[in-house]
């Protein structure tokens, strides 16, 4: 699956990194890094990460 984060919206709340740590990570500078094409097996967690993003910056595709 494809994951895109709108970095103009992202405010580094870090909730995605709690929901799907295999895909989203807050780096040592406090900013988001993410895997753009995670395995489909992680879909449930990635959906959850998109749900809990306070600024709704995470877009998912097939």
């Amino acid at each position: 699956m494809k994951v895109t984060v709108d970095m103009t919206l992202c405010e580094d709340h870090g909730q995605c990194a709690i929901a799907a740590p295999e895909v989203f990570r807050i780096n040592d500078d406090g900013h988001l890094e993410y895997e753009g094409e995670p395995s489909d097996e992680l879909e449930e967690y990635v959906e959850e990460a998109a749900d809990v993003c306070p600024v709704q910056a995470i877009l998912l595709g097939a």
Binding site: D12, H13, G14, A17, I18, P21, I26, N27, G30
Partner: peptide, 10 residues
């Protein structure tokens, strides 16, 4: 606090 600490706080 740094966002990297969210998990621990939760």
């Amino acid at each position: 606090l740094p966002p990297a600490r969210q998990r621990e706080l939760r």
